[in-house]
Design a protein around this nucleic acid. Structure first.
Lengths: 327, 327
DNA sequence: TTGAAAGCGCTAACAT
DNA sequence: ATGTTAGCGCTTTCAA
């Protein structure tokens, strides 16, 4: 009653293990009749390949690690679900590691996982790629996801929200808002820089830029209700939140303020998956192309693991502004 | 410049590979001086054990799978983070699989992962353990987490919220609420049954039970704002939500209703990690012992993998009621 | 068109 | 107190 091996299948089918292996991997021609017999043996004995043995022989681990800054952030949990489902048809499995927006933790994970996996999908919380390169080396492929990194010799899959933020800010300005607050995430992130810049450019163009309305925060800290209050005290009539988690917090806080009589405030937030979470209906949103990001990242890492040698490429997908219908 | 093997370390230290192996695994006595040399060799050559080879030899995979119903639910994402951190000191890694509250998907994952992992931590979305047993067999240990299962021959780690829900309901009754609504999650889940029963028992005791105020929902559907409206139309003055995700949605919807003039409604929800998410301040909460659950589950699965043969045990940790201070 | 066999890096039984 | 070595299940080169 032991787990059957290739040898068992070979004996059953009256062929050699080499033939069984080649049938499974489609790695050389096998006569249709022979192939038939082998397939039958596999089904009959309920055989399944031992990946450890294959791994020992080939050097591959059949494991891909996805390092996320915060798995309880719906953006990243959706990404991981989608990546996982795109990996399903391959024999690769996804290992998830949570870095909690902590560079040390990220480096520790990279070091611990490097010998265990064939490649990384990385939403990095680091400011640059130097340390990562040192740990991961040049042999294991890396695909950067969501957050770009300086001088990184890897494929990078990200969204571009510059235009969407610009459009959104313009929309607010056109609708009479002059004091528009902005709550930014960690300043070293590429996403933060891009989005904040769009806001700044737009506000400066219109002549209403006021740096006291630009708050640098950390989505991980869950302190956004305080920042919302600060901005309200500074007289804003609209607030832009630089990601979904912050948007949810701000939405909740704004409602509480409304109950205390505050009126006329508009919110522009992010939505990171196209299933409407929590029904934040009265908020303008920038919708990220989450599914596309996930699919592209999964594709890239598989290609690189299979040995694709082309120059690193950037894959950029635009976010879209979604104006709430005011009902 | 190839990856060093045990042989390299052995040669460097002037000993046999057996000795190196025993030093690494602490599996037999090695003279301190010899051990020293080996350790030096390991450090010097930057050696790291090849788990695939070890795996082939021992049959272990050094991988544990955690099957979650919904990774974007903060309860499960917190659990996974905590389990992961408890596994860190061991050589086991956590594989996360998302079943999306779909029994078919859960079974498919179990089948795909069974040959790849040493054990499962399972927050099952199935109504009973029969099919799981058939797939997983008796060789791979399973630890049930959060959700109990009929006739399951496995350790089970769960919280008990019966008392907390009862206390909470009593509190509401004592504060003059008579029409108290309840929005339940999937009816076949052990957690749902237990919590709903506590509510029903309490309401019947007081003579105010009204079955039209008990709504059976699905947290996965994100439709709770509608259920809240339904209950308000039916004249409730308090609503109990049977998990955190539902609580967040209800909280948001209630605030919107308040803005339309609704007053005097109280909410009792769940909080699944003790970092206060989204600052839902004006809500009573039942706090789950999330960290304890995670620690216990990690402990159990490791013990079972190491071969512990004791009878399956239930580990139950109580949830706690937290009354909001009304400010 | 298929088979034989070496060997991947490790563990552990058997030696001494 | 330590060494020798068979063999885990697979891939792949070489041979037929």
């Amino acid at each position: 009653m032991d787990k059957p091996t290739m040898k068992d299948v070979a004996r059953y089918a009256g062929v050699s293990v080499a033939t069984v292996s080649h049938v499974i991997n489609n790695s050389r021609f096998v006569a249709p009749a022979t192939k038939e017999k082998v397939l039958k043996g596999i089904a009959e004995l309920n055989y399944s390949l031992d990946l450890s043995a294959k791994s020992l022989k080939t050097g591959r681990k059949y494991l891909i690690a996805f390092l996320v800054p915060d798995i309880s952030n719906p953006f990243f949990s959706t990404l991981s679900e989608e990546i996982e489902s795109h990996l399903m048809p391959s024999q690769y499995r996804l290992l998830l590691a949570n870095t909690k927006e902590n560079p040390e933790k990220e480096l520790a994970h990279l070091a611990a996982l490097t010998p265990l996996v064939d490649g990384f999908i990385l939403a990095s919380t680091l400011p640059s790629s130097a340390k990562i390169k040192r740990i991961v080396g040049t042999r294991k492929p890396v695909v950067l996801l969501d957050r770009r990194l300086q001088d990184a010799p890897w494929d990078c899959v990200s969204s571009n929200s510059y235009h969407a933020v610009q459009e959104g800010t313009s929309y607010l300005l056109q609708h009479g808002h002059k004091r528009i607050g902005y709550i930014a995430d960690l300043p070293h992130l590429s996403t933060t820089k891009e989005r904040t810049q769009a806001y700044i450019d737009c506000m400066k163009d219109s002549g209403y830029f006021d740096e006291t309305l630009l708050i640098s925060a950390r989505s991980f800290a869950r302190k956004n209700h305080l920042h919302v209050r600060t901005l309200l005290q500074r007289g804003v009539s609209a607030i832009i939140l630089s990601n979904q988690l912050m948007a949810i917090e701000a939405y909740i806080e704004l409602n509480e303020q409304r109950l205390k009589g505050v009126t006329g405030i508009e919110l522009l937030g992010f939505e990171d998956s196209n299933q409407p979470q929590y029904g934040l209906r009265h908020m303008h949103k920038i919708v990220q192309p989450t599914q596309t990001l996930a699919r592209s990242a999964a594709e890239r890492i598989l290609k690189r693991i299979e040995g694709e040698e082309a120059e690193p490429r950037n894959f950029v997908f635009p976010s879209k502004l979604l104006i709430a219908n005011n009902n």
